[in-house]
């Protein structure tokens, strides 16, 4: 298990990185944390001719908390974001979800943006991206553009990102102040990719739910949002249990899981629905 040879590029600036990307195009891959890419290289499941290592690119490793968003640079490690108190205060869902990404040693290296760019439907952060209406800041030879999370993911490991484009940062949208969030997943072992997982945002007014949205891990081919407002609107901690059937039905109808060696599609559908039900009960009673 050793990677095939490749030409290594270590740009120091964004311009250099873009120039290198433009030059090698489809023959190249961006190397961020490498926690998904390097295993694939070592198993020779991927054999790009060029690697463009963005770890040395200046200015990509910052977290910025603004009124409407938390902006995470392309080289920010999962662990760095998980630990950021500012980011946690602004958007607790980030830490709630990140704790479920792999193990600490992987999070010390893997990047949140890389995880989103990688677009694995079993990843936690793509589902957080859609739930927060995140915006991808993208640079390419043709200049920069922004892609809404809803338009970003097109299939398992597929996005609308061009081969010569780089996600420089992701802006995760903040929720209204009266919103509580939660994240739960079930994995076979701690740190494994989830069999199913749910991210949830409940907004309330006058002690009752006024808006509810959920997104999922490992049970949809592209991460997308299920709006549960209709099902949950007006529910309180005391009476939310009565909405369980509606929630379960809505989740079951929304998800499109597939069977693999760890679980059947039916089981995943059940699990996603049950986890959602439990998470709602937990978040609302906080």
């Amino acid at each position: 298990m050793k990677p095939a040879p490749f030409v290594y590029h270590a740009p120091r600036t964004l311009d250099e990185a873009l120039a290198a990307l433009g030059e090698v195009g489809h023959d190249g891959k961006i190397l961020a944390g490498g926690q998904s890419l390097i295993p694939m290289l070592s198993m020779r499941l991927a054999t790009p001719a060029h690697l463009i290592d963005i770890n040395g690119v200046a200015g990509l490793d910052t977290i910025e908390v603004a009124d409407g968003y938390v902006r995470v640079g392309a080289c920010v490690r999962h662990a760095q974001l998980e630990r950021s108190e500012e980011a946690y205060a602004a958007l607790p869902l980030l830490r709630q979800a990140l704790r479920n990404v792999a193990h600490p040693a992987i999070r010390n290296r893997g990047t949140t943006v890389g995880s989103i760019a990688h677009a694995d439907a079993a990843g936690e952060m793509p589902s957080v991206a859609v739930l927060t209406d995140a915006v991808m800041e993208v640079c390419g030879p043709a200049g920069s553009r922004e892609i809404a999370a809803g338009d970003f993911f097109t299939g398992p490991l597929e996005t609308t990102l061009g081969a010569d484009e780089l996600v420089t940062a992701v802006r995760f949208g903040r929720f209204p102040s009266n919103t509580s969030t939660g994240f739960v997943e079930s994995a076979r072992r701690s740190g494994d990719y989830a069999v199913a997982g749910v991210a949830l945002a409940l907004t309330s007014g006058d002690g009752a739910i006024s808006a509810a949205r959920a997104s999922f891990v490992s049970v949809t081919d592209v991460p997308d949002v299920l709006d549960l407002t209709e099902v949950l609107s007006g529910a309180t901690a005391e009476d939310v249990a009565a909405r369980a059937d509606g929630v379960i039905e809505a989740v079951r109808a929304h998800v499109t899981p597939e069977s693999d060696i760890h679980a059947s599609a039916d089981y995943r559908r059940m699990l996603a629905a049950e986890l959602t039900r439990r998470l709602i009960a937990e978040v609302i009673s906080r």
Binding site: G34, A105, I106
Partner: peptide
């Protein structure tokens, strides 16, 4: 995790990094 080393004090998998990095 057998290959775990500390990179600037933080544990990382040394099998998931290139030496040049």
């Amino acid at each position: 995790g057998a290959c775990t080393v500390l990179l600037d004090g933080a544990p990382v998998r040394s099998c998931l990094m290139f030496a040049v990095q």
